[in-house]
Design a protein around this nucleic acid. Structure first.
Length: 611
RNA sequence: GGGGUCGUAGUUAAGUUGGUUAUAACGCCGGCCUGUCACGCCGGAGGCCGCGGGUUCGAGUCCCGUCGACCCCGCCA
């Protein structure tokens, strides 16, 4: 009845003194596409007031929607009523305008706008909604960068801004492209549960209490790993899913507690088949999003070689400055740091910073600070100047050793050699990180270059000295290389896995493996992981059962969609490619999650908080 | 859990050696303005200096604690 009264009254499109109703108006166009061809067309546009320029007479409004911006003009001589209402417009008011597309006068076009050759002369304005003054400008051309905490609190406003909007739109389009690719390749998109079972190993789980089973919990999936293997057993030989995953670990610039994986699994395939499919998928994405043709097949690097040459298992091959092993050459030197290190079983490696001889003492100290974070005890440096080697340690190095190093590292006048000595893993890690740091700082990384590669043959296990046991590098279902099967009994630490990572520009964007499908191998792996039969039974008995009912050889991979989107959109933070991200303390500043709950709610779940 | 950077008006920042009424730009409000497009001109309002404690005659400034944002280590494919 309210409504009927409203419509009867509403012959004059009024909601209140200030607001109009939309009535039967429909958008005829959006704000991003009108051009000279539309001149003379009568249009209805709807959107937000990006900016109002009031000249007392003429009023210009930049009208914005998802698609772009169109300038609409209110002229008191053309339509005084519309002009009068336009005087009260403010930023982010929602309006509808009816008007005529007109060419802009000579010299008045705006080359920065796609619609900059036209404008719309307004005959009627309907104010659909008002807006509070936004806490920051939606127009990013204005002012400086806004603090991220403010942007996160008002995420709905930040999402209106160009940068974030473009990222979100691109993400949607890329996601569709990925779906299309897999559907065309014959893959089935199959959903797996979010309320599932806590998985052993790996990251900390997010737990969900079960109301109907007090004291029992679901876990949110860290990945659909077990389910996709089950699907293989069930015969769905090509599966994919673009799926949310959850890990309760501390955040980083490229890590969120909930994130999206492109999850893939296939049966009856070799690693090479999988590589080919995934390379074609990436090529398709890059063709679509970047208009770049990615060369295939991607280079492959063994884990051992990656560590040896780049110090990291996700090498950035866009620039050189590879690590050089100096253990042999410097191990016998009179410098104690070097000789002691080698005597203690350590290694000495260095990188040659071409043309780096000019770095100041302060800059070298900063670099030493940088590597100390990774546990490096010090950073030795050698400058090669016109007069020869300069370094506090130069006097300990014999001339023949100097020339050997020069040859090995292409160390020439003008260069700077940075050297770290210590335990092997620490040397590789810290020098590898230093290489990335310098590559960035010295602008050695070419713009617009995208280096894909596969890192293969990861170790199956890593030994933990403290716990005195092996852990899976990938996960417990990863198959060993067939030629290493015997080592499983002799030297488990040397067994290589049929695991692989896809690396793009030094970022690990995906990883997977060929899985174990034979129960005997699986049992041996569990043994090595000190997972007893009962424990295995309890934790993932359902998978072990399934494997006994005719499991096909299978394998898969999962990509981090967020990281891929970061690279595609050049975002510095994962938060810039996720519509509603969380802060470093895993909070959502907009919704204020997480929050305390009523005691009733806890009671119902059989939970009691520790005081 | 640890290291670092930061927190002043709606926003972004300045604020000296501890010293009178805490500045500026943009935004906001009012007025003027018919070709602007980050319009322009004139005027105005706006502050829990993150919060709590301490030192001091006096704290935005120094000290301690705490909260929050960001980057990193640990952690995490």
């Amino acid at each position: 009845m309210n409504r009927a009264w409203f419509l009867w009254e509403g012959s004059v499109n009024k909601v209140s003194n200030e607001l109009d109703i939309m009535g039967h108006w429909q958008r005829t166009h959006n704000c991003g596409t009108l051009n000279e061809d539309d001149v003379g067309t009568k249009v209805i546009l709807m959107g937000w007031v990006l900016r109002r320029r009031d000249h007392g007479g003429l009023i210009f409004v930049d009208l914005r929607d998802r698609y772009g911006v169109t300038q609409v003009v209110f002229n008191p001589e053309r339509e005084s009523e519309a002009h009068r209402k336009a005087e009260n417009l403010r930023s982010e008011y929602v309006i509808a305008v009816l008007g005529v597309v007109s060419p802009r006068p000579d010299g008045m076009t705006n080359p920065d706008l796609i619609t900059g050759k036209i404008e719309v002369f307004v005959d009627e304005l309907r104010v659909l909604n008002k807006s509070l003054t936004p806490p920051f400008a939606i127009d990013e051309r204005e002012g400086e960068e806004v603090g991220e905490d403010v942007r996160l609190k008002y995420r709905y406003l930040d999402l209106r801004r160009e940068t974030l909007k473009e990222n979100i739109i691109q993400r949607s389009l890329v996601t569709k492209k990925i779906r299309d690719f897999f559907y065309e390749e014959g893959y089935l998109e199959i959903e797996t549960p979010f309320l599932t079972k806590s998985t052993p190993e790996g990251a900390r789980d997010y737990l969900v209490p079960s109301r109907v089973n007090p004291g029992h919990f679901y876990a949110l999936p860290q990945s659909p790993q077990l389910f996709k293997q089950i699907l293989m057993v069930s015969g769905y030989d090509r599966y994919f899913q673009i799926v949310h995953c959850f890990r309760d670990e501390d955040l980083r610039a490229d890590r969120q507690p909930e994130f999206t994986q492109i999850d893939v699994e296939m049966s009856f395939i070799t690693r090479d088949v999988l590589f080919d499919v995934m390379e074609r998928m990436m090529a398709e994405i890059f063709r679509f999003a970047m208009d770049i043709e990615i060369p295939r097949p991607f280079p492959r690097l063994t884990y051992t070689e990656a560590i040896h040459r780049y110090g990291l298992d996700r090498p950035d091959t866009r620039f050189g400055m590879e690590l050089v092993d100096l253990t042999e050459l410097l191990g016998n030197s009179e410098a104690r740091i070097f000789s002691d290190t080698v005597a203690g079983g350590g290694r000495i490696k260095g990188i040659n910073v071409k043309g780096g001889e000019g770095l100041s003492r302060k800059e070298l100290d900063d670099l030493a600070d940088y590597v100390s974070v990774y546990g490096a005890k010090g950073l030795a440096w050698f400058k090669y100047s016109e007069e020869g080697w300069k370094s506090p340690l130069a006097k300990f190095i014999g001339n023949d050793v100097k020339s050997d190093i020069s040859r090995l590292a292409s160390f020439e006048p003008g260069d700077l050699l940075l050297v770290i000595a210590g335990e092997s893993a620490l040397v590789n890690e810290s020098l590898g990180q230093l290489r990335i740091h310098l590559g960035d700082r010295l602008s050695l990384i070419p713009e617009g270059r995208y280096d894909f590669l596969w890192v293969i043959d990861f170790p199956l296990f890593e030994y933990d000295e403290e716990d005195g046991r092996y852990y899976s590098v990938h996960h417990p279902f990863t198959a060993p290389l067939e030629e290493d099967l015997d080592l499983l009994h002799q030297e488990p630490g040397k067994v290589r896995a049929r695991a692989y990572d896809m690396v793009l520009n030094g970022s690990e964007i995906g990883g997977g493996s060929i899985r174990i499908h034979q129960e005997s191998v699986q049992r041996r792996v569990f043994e090595l992981l000190t997972i007893g039969p009962e424990e295995a039974r309890e934790k993932f008995g359902f998978l072990l059962d399934a494997l006994q009912y005719g499991a096909p050889p299978h394998g898969g991979i999962a990509f981090g969609l967020d990281r891929i989107m970061m690279i595609l959109s050049g975002a510095g933070s994962i938060r810039d490619v996720i519509p509603f991200p969380k802060t470093q303390k895993a909070a959502c500043l907009m919704t204020e999650a997480p929050n305390p709950v009523e005691s009733d709610q806890l009671l119902e779940l059989g939970l009691k908080l520790r005081k």
